[in-house]
Design a protein around this nucleic acid. Structure first.
Lengths: 333, 333
DNA sequence: CTGAAAGCGCTAACAA
DNA sequence: TTGTTAGCGCTTTCAG
């Protein structure tokens, strides 16, 4: 497997006729070394195929140059954008990126954080399922940044769902709908709460009735039960917690011969891959999730740097926008 | 961020009235310690909130309890299954899982391996773009397992595409098609080569003509050019390098008013999310990709263990199967 | 600007 | 079974 002996700073030092500390400086603190010396050292290092051992660096300095991102569920395409943005940003900064799944479990999330604590400089928690209290407590010991979740006092990057949910209501109202039902996601989901609050407020303002049903698993399979529940509710418009659920709902409606949007309108969240080619194509709230991932990593990196530690904005909000496709139409009369 | 001072084995040792090495053993080599002593140590450790520092362990022992998976492109849903399977397996073994993207670049792949080398026990390379030579060379220094790629002498887990591609040909032949065109993926893709070889051989056997066009980017956007090229070729059936490309092709055909499958049949590979609800639903070669990811990690873990180092199977092959949906039909006459 | 020396927290001989 | 003793490869005072 791995070679018997790797070259270390000592090998380089000996060969270059300098002390190990000088080699160390040549790499990690270039300006503290005479330019000529450094060049010489670097050359020898190159020739010997020297590679710094990140583990040794981390053990000694406490800096691991690694961050971890925790995601509830990888099979949800919604997260791809966020993950991708975060990974790109970390990679650009020369930071190793660890991805981990928590299977929608707050306990898992917590234990993963504890397990990885010493191996990373910080965490990006995507759509964290942990309670505010637990999160704040962990944030005292660990470097945390949230994505699509807000907790008082913690840095976060979120795609606003409030204004976006209002857009959904306005859209439905303009089509003559007088009632909507929100098919909710996991009840630990902060986002689900945000969405419902905004939908309800928007509906009230427009004189529409709004009901919430669920929770439903935020996956295609959840769509069957969700669709049936929606039908019983009598609402003319359903807003699904996410596109996965919405696609499942469309499928169930198709099975039952319920025509969308003639008999009922369907709206989703996230604009995932597939939302544009399912049938009917899904009206959904799209957002710059890749940007959110990037911003989160940026917040994390900034906390590490000595400068601008507290001056930096702690909270990034990004705008979402409604993409209108074929799953919404005039309310039936 | 992180607390000022973490408790170490020394703190525990002092408190428990034993040597540090005993504490170390109590955790990493439980059977080499008197049961009573161990229990006592563990209790003290618990009370003091001791957590082993994986970095120190790794630096000393060389074992990092971490593996890395390198994937060409995360936005390709094809990889989700593989990633998920690998992650689950690693997680079950208490192994930290690092995910990294190589953006379809062999150079990137190589440099990532070198960068992570000291921080991980091994690598899972998914659909590696590196040449056989480079791969073999790297395998001398690093612990590599391949997924959906075969290189002489290296362990791998692959979903067979040969037999699967034959199934595609048989299916098309049975529908009366006399010609097919393969719209190829990246030319560094080993899989693309395998597929084409099998398609060509199968076609020959069935007296069909087979042509290869491309390479096309294996994404939806590649579908436009691919579809147009297929049309010019005059073939009655197109086999796309993957479902993403196939979906792009369907879209282009729809735009151009080409009816599928009446005028032309379309087949994809991978059975990704969305393949069942695009229009028409896609006929595609499905495979147990999650299983492949799991198997790859298993191969990696096995190499580490002293026993069965060489007895273990080095190559896992999994069967694929054709899922027939609505994008294939009788050849036009 | 450079070198010597002391660890970071843990494991692994080797003794006892 | 347990303790002692060296380090793993690097960074970081502290002198020079």
């Amino acid at each position: 497997m791995s070679s018997p002996k790797r070259t270390t700073i000592y090998d380089v030092a000996r060969e270059a006729g300098v002390a190990a500390s000088t080699v160390s400086r040549a790499f990690s603190n270039p300006r503290r070394v005479n330019a000529t010396t450094r060049e010489h050292v670097l050359e020898i290092a190159e020739r010997l195929g020297y590679r710094p051992n990140p583990l040794a660096t981390a053990l000694q300095s406490g800096r691991t140059a690694t961050i971890a991102m925790l995601v509830p569920d990888i099979t949800n395409p919604h997260f791809f954008g966020t993950i991708h943005g975060a990974e790109r940003r970390a990679s650009a900064a020369g930071i190793t990126f660890i991805l981990s799944y928590t299977e929608e479990s707050a306990d898992n999330e917590r234990s993963q954080i504890e397990r990885l604590a010493r191996s990373v400089d910080g965490f990006v928690l995507a759509a964290s399922r942990m309670s505010d209290g637990t999160t704040v407590e962990l944030a005292r010991e660990h470097n945390l940044v949230l994505v699509n979740r807000e907790v008082e006092g913690l840095p976060s990057a979120v795609v606003d769902n409030g204004p976006g949910s209002w857009q959904i209501v306005e859209h439905l109202a303009s089509l003559g709908h007088r009632s909507l039902v929100y098919l909710s996601g996991p009840h630990q989901s902060w986002l689900a709460g945000e969405r419902w609050r905004a939908l309800r407020a928007g509906a009230e303002q427009r004189g529409m009735t709004a009901a919430r049903l669920g929770p439903f698993p935020p996956r295609v399979v959840g769509g069957g039960a969700a669709a049936d529940a929606a039908l019983v509710s009598g609402a003319t418009a359903v807003v699904a917690h996410n596109d996965l659920l919405a696609i499942g709902i469309l499928r169930r409606f198709a099975e039952r011969g319920v025509r969308v949007p003639q008999e009922i309108s369907v709206v989703g969240y996230d604009d995932i891959f597939g939302a544009d080619f399912c049938v009917p194509a899904l009206t959904t709230l799209a957002g710059p999730h890749e940007e959110a991932g990037r911003a989160a990593v940026e917040l994390l990196l900034r906390r590490g740097s000595p400068s601008a530690a507290e001056t930096a904005p702690r909270r990034v909000t990004l705008s979402s926008h409604l993409v209108i496709r074929d799953s919404t139409g005039p309310a039936p009369r």
